[in-house]
Design a protein around this nucleic acid. Structure first.
Lengths: 233, 233
DNA sequence: TGCCATGCATAACCCTGCGTTAACCCCGAC
DNA sequence: GTCGGGGTTAACGCAGGGTTATGCATGGCA
């Protein structure tokens, strides 16, 4: 996880199921560099439990796994009703192997050795199709899921009022940049700003939810400039 | 269950945009044999107009087209907001060509010569992801079978009025996303919304059927945002 | 033909919680 | 010392949303 706020709003989260730990580390590092967050499971069973527990945009699935092989994992996922796109990674190039993969319910099939850039492109294509779920805003450990209308900090869900939501959204979109109070007021109310006090009250409430319960405050005011949402003041 | 659903989904309709008429005829015949209906356009412009006019599950796009090449066609489709999956067919195997394809918005990339069976498998994967849910919708332990017009929760059948059905269907299609009340009203009545009260009454009745008899409520309202159907609020 | 069940629209009611407002307070700049 | 930008707090009004009751259609059925 990169320490700084990401400029990319579109940050797919993938699960890599792969028993070769060296390869897994290489892939994971590269994907992180490309702005794709990557969880890792080293066996089929571990992968299946992770899939049930968390949300992923794409699943990278090695075909040759020790006990439970990739085909089986994919079949079980589909049988359980999971629709998450699966990208099968394998050294087997034969037509029959590919067809078996698709029959098991995979969405794409990439033969090793492959170019890492192609892997990234295919992940993005698969994640983008579910465009609804891929739209997230994030900064530090704050994550905002736009279609689901949920915000979490450090994985913990936050309760926001409609205005609090819009406030946080504008700050996130600008992050790590600074937003002037005038811009915030315009984002909340347009031209008809209710009272000069309103904004600071809303900011106060937002901090109560986003900052106070946590160790590190993220909302900083740069006096005379405006407000910013980031780790370092 | 879900596996059977995939197999059972039949007759995707694809559009083949290809200037080589011999190849087009061969592909088209083979796809027809496999139960995939295939329209054909022999130029980029012709393809674009067809795409606007009719619905296709997948678009097979040759990269090398006379005037308007495949990349351009794909870009224009995406710019126009079309989300139809595109499968690029081409003789060019280079990494740069592939990356350019994905950058233009393609969903899959198949290098000639390819096995016809692999083409079919990839078409079905692309079509299934979009319309595989055409038969059956589900979320948590709720299952809706569209052709049979039955809904169950935890295996137990639910009795829904026509309006309740459409309401639940809209929520299921969006799940786990949030649907605004305006969208719901539009889905139920179009432009002629009867009364501002009607929606909340129908929602109340739907909850009586879907949520109240069960331990875990699934229909949540996120104040100021809309309604959602999922496990976590 | 008349009865009953079902589904829908409408109106009325209540309550929670959100937004606004008006205070007061703190602190650094001048 | 004063002024102003910004943080904190409490009070009030109201809209959004949940709940309940009523009346009117429609359609099946005796």
């Amino acid at each position: 996880m990169a320490a700084e706020c990401r400029e990319q709003y579109l940050m797919p989260i993938v699960l890599l199921i792969e028993d070769d730990l060296d390869l897994a580390a290489t892939l994971s590092d590269y994907l992180d560099l490309e702005g794709i967050q990557c969880d890792h499971a080293s066996s089929g069973v571990a992968g299946l439990t992770l899939v049930e527990r968390a949300h992923y945009d794409v699943i990278l699935l090695d075909l040759n796994l020790p006990r439970l092989d990739g085909l089986e994992v994919c079949q079980r996922m589909r049988a359980a009703g999971m629709e998450t796109p699966v990208l099968m990674l394998t050294a087997r190039d034969g037509l029959d192997a590919k067809l078996a993969g698709f029959r098991a319910g995979t969405d794409d099939y990439l033969v090793k050795p492959f170019a890492l850039q192609e892997l990234v492109a295919r992940i993005q294509a698969l994640a983008g199709r579910r465009s609804g779920q891929a739209q997230r805003l994030g900064c530090a450990d704050v994550e905002m899921n736009l279609p689901e209308r949920t915000v979490t900090r450090g994985g913990q869900p936050l309760r926001l009022s409609p205005t609090g939501w819009r406030l946080l959204e504008t700050l996130l979109r600008a992050s790590p940049g600074v937003v002037t109070r005038a811009t915030l007021e315009a984002a909340l109310w347009g031209d008809e700003v209710p009272d000069s006090n309103s904004l600071k009250v809303h900011l106060y409430h937002l901090r109560q939810v986003v900052d106070v319960p946590f160790a590190l405050p993220l909302i900083h005011t740069l006096p005379g400039h405006g407000i910013t949402l980031r780790e370092a003041p």
